[in-house]
Computed example of a mutant assay.
Amino acid sequence: MKKIFYALTLIIAASVCIPAHAIDDVPDGLPDRIVGDIGGAIYTSNLHIGTEGTQSLVLPYAFFDYKRFFARIDEVGIKTFKLGYGYFEVIGKINLDTYKVKSSINGNVINRSDPIPLGLGTFQETPIGGFFVNAYHDFGKSKGGLYEFLYFAEIETYKKVVVYPQVGIERQSSQYANYYYGINPGESNLTGYGAYTAPATNNLLAGLMVEIPVVDNWYINIYGKRKWMGSGINNSPVMNRSFQDNIFAALAYRFK
Rank of each mutant, 00 (worst) to 15 (best):
F88K: 03
V210M: 13
I183A: 02
I34Q: 06
F81S: 14
T80F: 03
R254I: 06
K225N: 12
G92A: 08
F149C: 02
Q244F: 02
N95T: 12
K227E: 12
K160M: 11
I212L: 14
P31S: 12
G130V: 13
V76W: 00
S56W: 04
Y151G: 02
T9H: 09
I247M: 09
Q175R: 11
Q244M: 13
M209A: 15
N111C: 07
P199D: 11
K67D: 04
E52Q: 15
E125H: 12
G92M: 05
T126I: 09
I220L: 14
R33I: 08
F248I: 02
L47M: 11
Q124F: 03
F81I: 15
G168E: 10
G207Y: 12
A177F: 02
I4G: 04
Y180Q: 00
T44C: 09
P31L: 03
G230E: 00
S142N: 10
Y181I: 00
Y253D: 04
G119V: 04
G230I: 00
A153N: 15
H137P: 01
K100N: 15
D216G: 09
T126V: 08
N189K: 14
S56H: 12
L208M: 14
L59M: 12
V101G: 00
G53Y: 11
E211H: 08
V163L: 11
G121W: 05
W228P: 04
I128W: 13
V16F: 15
F132L: 13
D97A: 12
G121I: 06
H21E: 12
F132M: 14
I212T: 14
L146D: 05
K79Q: 08
W228A: 14
V35F: 01
V133A: 10
L208D: 05
N189E: 15
V101L: 08
A41P: 02
K67P: 00
V58Y: 15
M209G: 08
S142C: 08
D65T: 03
K67G: 04
N134T: 11
I128G: 03
D28W: 03
D216N: 13
P165W: 11
P213N: 07
Y6A: 05
Y147S: 05
L251S: 14
N246W: 01
I18S: 04
V163S: 05
Y136Q: 03
Q124G: 04
E52K: 11
F152V: 11
A153S: 14
Y61P: 01
V238G: 00
V214R: 04
T54Q: 11
S242E: 09
S174G: 10
F255I: 05
Y223D: 08
G145F: 04
Y253L: 07
I233V: 13
P199L: 04
Y179W: 12
K225E: 14
A71W: 00
A252L: 05
V90L: 15
V16P: 03
D65C: 01
G53T: 07
